[in-house]
Amino acid sequence: MLLESGRVVAVEPDVVWVETLRRSTCGSCAARAGCGQRLLNRHEGGGRGLVRALSGDALKAADCRVNDRVEIALPEEVILRGSTIVYAVPIISMILAVALVSGLSTDAGDAASVTAALAGFAAGLGLVRWHAFSHRDDPRIQPVLQRRLPADLDAGITVAAMS
């Protein structure tokens, strides 16, 4: 499990919204000069983000209050599967759309291929959005509340491996 800590900013019946501080490892990365992650974090307002966390076994959303420090957990395999879906589905759908247009017409021009590629890419993004929406309440792939933290702890990311 990947663990992250943050501050509760809103409480709903079965979920809480947690503000996290994304700290990158740019200082120790060899590619820091050629990577856009540091610039992206700076552009996004210091790397703060909102995470929707579901009630967990140990801590329920109803037990949380605004400004509580909490720890949320996410299984490691969710990151890999999510990345694959987000990146692969639009590209594969774009390639399939171009192949379909090329297969239907032997004299398909560049304009038809570009249009098919854009339409396929947009359809792939729509599929990713549908997948995210249809799995929004699935605790196997959503962050879940782990525990309440003492108020004096920093709300930054604490990434650790749980046994």
Rank of each mutant, 00 (worst) to 15 (best):
M1V: 12
M1F: 07
L2E: 03
L3S: 14
L3K: 14
G6N: 02
G6V: 00
G6L: 05
A10E: 15
V11Q: 05
P13T: 06
V15T: 14
V18I: 11
E19S: 09
L21V: 12
R22A: 11
S24N: 14
S24K: 03
C26A: 13
S28C: 02
S28W: 05
C29G: 10
R32A: 14
A33F: 11
C35Q: 00
G36E: 07
G36T: 03
Q37D: 05
Q37Y: 10
R38C: 12
N41C: 03
N41R: 11
E44G: 07
G45P: 10
G49Y: 00
G49L: 00
L50A: 06
L50Q: 07
V51W: 05
V51T: 10
L54H: 04
S55T: 07
G56L: 14
K60H: 12
R65W: 08
N67D: 14
R69S: 06
V70W: 03
E76V: 08
E77A: 10
E77Y: 13
E77M: 07
L80Q: 10
R81M: 02
G82K: 04
S83N: 12
I85C: 08
Y87V: 12
I92A: 11
S93Q: 08
M94C: 14
L100D: 02
V101M: 09
V101Y: 00
L104F: 15
D107F: 09
D107A: 12
A108C: 13
D110I: 13
A111K: 08
V114N: 12
T115H: 00
G120Y: 09
G120P: 04
A122H: 07
A123T: 12
A123D: 01
L125Y: 01
L125R: 08
G126H: 01
W130G: 05
H131P: 00
H131N: 09
H131Q: 05
A132I: 04
H135R: 09
Q142D: 10
R147Q: 14
R148E: 12
P150H: 12
D152C: 02
L153R: 15
L153A: 08
D154V: 09
D154M: 04
A155E: 06
I157Q: 13
T158G: 03
V159F: 15
A160N: 11
A161Q: 13
